[in-house]
Amino acid sequence: MKISNWIKLIALGSALTLPFGKAVVAADFIDTLDKPAIQTEKAVHGIFTGLAAAGERLIAVGQRGHIFYSDDAGVHWQQANVPVSSDLVAVHFPTPLQGWAVGHDGVVLHSSDAGQTWIRQFDGRQVGPVMLAYYQRMAAAQPENSDLQTRVAEAQRMSDEGADKPFLDVWFESDRVGYIVGAFNLIFRTDDGGQHWSPWLDRTENPAALNLYALRPVGNELFIVGEQGLVLKLDPVAERFNAIPTPYNGTFFGVTGKPGAVLVFGLRGNAYRSVDGGVSWSKVELGLPLSITASTVTTDGRIVLLSQAGHVLVSVDDGVSFKLQPQNGLAPVAAAQVSASGALVLAGARGLRQLPLE
């Protein structure tokens, strides 16, 4: 399963017709990793794929490196200064000031002022070389380990291919320790606030190198979800993400829930719930055949799921059942966040908007 088509950002080519005899001079190419995001008021109506709370402030990230922040629950937005124009996919703030955003071209951005300004900490040009150096050191110390030799070859390939692998989600447990995940089992961890990143590909039970779409904690447990029914759970003692069997072999796009109740959700309205940390799962009947692409938990404990078309489903019983909320003007949703005031803010293909909850 490839990244969902509706959240892909498609570059449209255009042809320029000139009078006969005129020379066509190509503009100098500037890599999106080196080109700052354009400051424009129109950007707030563009495509956004990630939302996070930074204290009472809301942060939204999207196409072409656009990052906006709001201090009034999403009514008004201001554009942040961003050093790249790569498409951004996800954002997380473990504290009101410190936050990270990730996206295409393997980019990782950091803000220390509640999302107002950003710096580039890591990118796809570094992913391959960092992996290669890391696994070469491990392979030299364990020459009999064939898995490490495979990791070296994989890292060499990524180095040769360049900055073409996206990171698709980010989560930090503090302003020091965090994880980034992405396509083809890409996963890195930092213990120093993103100054250095260590690959964890050998610490995930994902031999098929399936895409990792989301990682989030539920209670004290950290989960990753991805393609083909993949659900991984962190063993903090072994420092390893172990696979958890699920009844579904389709793609999961996200994970949410409350302490004691974990929900994973994805394609064609499929959602599953576990009350024993992922040992067993029960199907949640949503009555909606559309992919579930976003979630959030309200301040009063309701679990909210949103479809790719913008349907809102709300649970008041910790995910046992969901009720479809009546609404008008459906629009694709990629991310959702409840503001400090209780407003539901949505990000998607039609920009940023508020939506009242019943």
Rank of each mutant, 00 (worst) to 15 (best):
N5T: 08
I7Q: 05
I10F: 04
A11N: 12
A11P: 07
G13Y: 06
L18M: 08
P19V: 01
G21N: 02
G21H: 01
A26N: 06
A43N: 13
V44G: 03
V44K: 15
G46R: 15
F48M: 04
F48N: 03
G50T: 03
A53T: 12
V61T: 09
F68D: 01
Y69L: 05
A73D: 15
G74R: 02
G74L: 08
V82Q: 00
S86I: 09
D87F: 14
L88H: 00
H92L: 08
P94S: 08
P96M: 02
L97F: 11
D105Q: 14
D105S: 15
G106E: 10
L109H: 05
L109M: 11
L109W: 11
S111W: 10
D113R: 01
I119H: 11
I119N: 08
F122V: 11
V127Y: 01
L132T: 10
L132P: 07
Y135Q: 12
A139W: 11
A139R: 09
Q142A: 15
N145E: 10
S146L: 13
S146K: 07
D147E: 07
D147S: 14
T150P: 13
E161F: 02
P166W: 07
D175H: 08
V181F: 02
L186I: 05
I187G: 01
I187Q: 11
G193L: 04
G193I: 00
G194C: 08
Q195E: 14
H196S: 15
W197E: 00
S198I: 13
S198M: 09
L201R: 13
D202S: 07
T204G: 07
E205T: 06
A208H: 06
A209K: 15
P217M: 09
V218K: 01
N220S: 14
G226C: 04
E227C: 00
E227G: 00
L232E: 11
L234H: 01
V237A: 15
V237C: 06
E239Q: 12
F241G: 13
F241C: 12
F241W: 02
A243E: 11
G250A: 12
F252D: 02
F253N: 04
T256G: 08
T256S: 14
G260D: 15
Y272V: 03
R273Y: 08
V279P: 00
W281D: 05
V284E: 08
L286K: 05
G287P: 03
G287N: 10
S295W: 04
V297Q: 06
T298F: 09
D300K: 12
L305M: 06
L306Y: 05
Q308Y: 00
G310Q: 04
L313D: 00
S315F: 07
G319P: 01
N328V: 10
A336F: 04
S341L: 03
S341A: 12
A343C: 03
L344T: 13
R350W: 01
G351Q: 01
G351T: 14
P356G: 02
